[in-house]
Design a protein around this nucleic acid. Structure first.
Lengths: 340, 340
DNA sequence: TAATAAAATGTAAGCTCTTACAATGATTTT
DNA sequence: AAAATCATTGTAAGAGCTTACATTTTATTA
């Protein structure tokens, strides 16, 4: 690299002190307008940019936030759930709109990700993203809390921890799905996902589904509930198990679109027609959902809004203000897979 | 935040000088093993992390790279082409495998993105990503070159600029597509994309297509070539124009999958059957491609490899070694949309 | 016109590390 | 036993900025 100029070079050329340069470049009201313009002109001419490291070191904040995306360890490192990719996109935009830089990093929940970004002053705060088996890293969250690290999570609330998060109203979403299916006259609605707090989002969707069933006088049948986590493959397998079980079912509620897509494949391979014989509904509304055949009825989570909110909430915390957990309203998107 | 400990605190507790702490924490061979272990233990106990800003400032490198993703300005800020999202994922992984942090940022080609990241020492180098109308920012690339900034681009080579890039062999990909379609007996193959150097990738695909046509004794017919850039909407519109033109065609080569998906929609709305009446082929192999109905024949670009290569190449340059431009082999993925 | 207030600039400390260089003690060589 | 070598540690100088505080200049008021 060529020799870089420093604020001293600018100061020398402008005939002022270095501190005045520093102030001028940050548009401090303390400096005379003429002086400031002169300094900024010289800076531009020399291609000068304030050194981020020096600046952050001195001021003790980096105007940077770090996004930690937790990957599904069962997933062989290739595809990331498109839903999170979409979140990533909106978070990136939200940051840039606010003049913040964004550090992105993929993590395994099991690894030593906590205690890194903010402690080393790489970032002023963290966003934690991923379908969360928060149980498996509750201990790390506690440490984060203990260190007074600023962070927000995407996802469900965690029982009795005072965590700030932004999430979708999964219970409501699950309820709307089940209501809709029931209103279409289906009675045996299988659930593909997980009814355990290891996947709190799925669990909440499941609870909403149960609630709807019960309020329509239907009973929840365990024998048509099969476990599946996050991936298309898992969905495929769960659906195969469901079919093989011999249990009757006339609808499937998949806990996320990827699972639904896998289930769709399984159903088609078994020549089960959708929506005639079986209704299928997913959750997330990833791009793929509108292209499957038949197109997939699902629940849209507004990722654009979610990204904004996550960043907004985190910045509030960084500023030292009180932030609170927000719930985003889900939106049922009706397509062909449930015989609209 | 709580009071953070510094290397001096560690030094005090360990009864050594601060410089020894600094060495110990970076596993310098200069320090005695017993001393090092003691220091590292204390550091761990105090939750100490080396301050990234101080470290980068002093050493003049940040072990960080910046990814600039150029958005299509015609796109109203919502969706990013899934292909690039996939690249983003693989780049993130490649960085983290090498212990580098990654700064991600979306940019409009028109804006003042150059001269920022490396000049301010935020990053040691840049990766430029996006379907590139490099003409529109040639001037900025020149400035980057002039400033001796380290950067790699994803995409086609640019005429006579000495730019290092990693790209797909688009010519070859276009050729394979056309060869395949022709071998299936189709003769009037429309092209939806752009035959201009404003979108060099598309142009190369087009040239490959032309080459294949000619080598099979077919002539390239301008009247069934319609402009479309990057988006599904553009693909839809271009296909509509094609249909409205009244020209005969029995196949469509779309310059990217999103265009193909748009074209698919247009064809279906006009009750044109695929692949019976018209074969349809795309490019990129985004996730959606395998879910359309019929599933989309396309050309896969290995994003996993591409990410690795981009990072690898950039790091080579950062180390001061000679790096060279690489071309990735395209792979034709045959599905149902061209009547395999 | 002197006293006071306001605006603009300068001085210097310090943010936390890395690293060249100097110093120490232990070990080996002659 | 003195000289030379090696391993380990310490000393101190920045890297380039921000900011509290001091100072100067200019405008305002009595």
């Amino acid at each position: 690299m060529k020799e870089k100029s420093t604020s001293f070079d600018i100061a020398f050329r402008a005939g002022v002190s270095q501190s005045t340069v520093s102030r001028a470049l940050r548009n401090s009201p303390l400096v005379n307008e003429a002086t400031r313009e002169k300094i900024q002109a010289i800076a531009k001419e020399l291609n000068y940019k304030v050194d981020k490291n020096a600046s952050s070191l001195r001021s003790q904040h980096s105007d940077t936030i770090a996004l930690l995306l937790f990957e599904d360890p069962t997933n062989d490192d290739s595809a990331i759930n498109p839903f999170f990719l979409s979140m990533l996109g909106s978070i990136t935009r939200a940051c840039s709109n606010r003049g913040y830089d964004l550090l992105v990093s993929f993590q395994q929940a099991s690894e030593d990700w906590h205690a890194d970004y903010e402690d080393s002053n790489k970032a002023d705060g963290l966003i934690l993203l991923g379908y969360g088996d928060y149980l498996s890293y509750e201990e790390k969250l506690l440490k984060l809390l203990d260190q007074e690290t600023h962070f927000v999570r995407w996802g469900a609330e965690v029982k009795n921890l005072p965590l700030i998060s932004v999430g979708c109203d999964n219970f409501q979403g699950g309820k709307e799905v089940a209501d809709h299916i029931i209103n279409q006259g289906r009675k045996q609605i299988a659930f593909l996902g997980t009814a355990s707090s290891h996947a709190p989002e799925f669990f909440d969707r499941y609870k909403g589904y149960c609630h709807a069933l019960e309020s329509h006088g239907l009973i929840v049948n365990d024998r048509i509930q099969f476990n599946a986590l996050y991936t298309e493959d898992a969905g495929y397998k769960a659906a195969c198990e469901l079919i093989a079980s011999g249990e009757k079912f006339d609808a499937i509620f998949a806990a996320c679109d990827l699972i639904a897509v896998g289930a769709l494949r399984a159903l088609q391979e078994h020549n089960i027609t959708i929506p005639e014989q079986v209704s299928l509904v997913g959750f997330d509304d990833i791009a793929i959902a509108s292209f499957t055949f038949p197109s997939l009825t699902t629940v849209k989570q507004d990722t654009q809004l979610a990204g904004e909110l996550l960043v907004e909430t985190l910045l509030t915390m960084i500023q030292g203000d009180e932030a609170k957990t927000t719930l985003i309203a889900p939106e049922l998107v009706i397509r062909k897979s449930c015989g609209s």
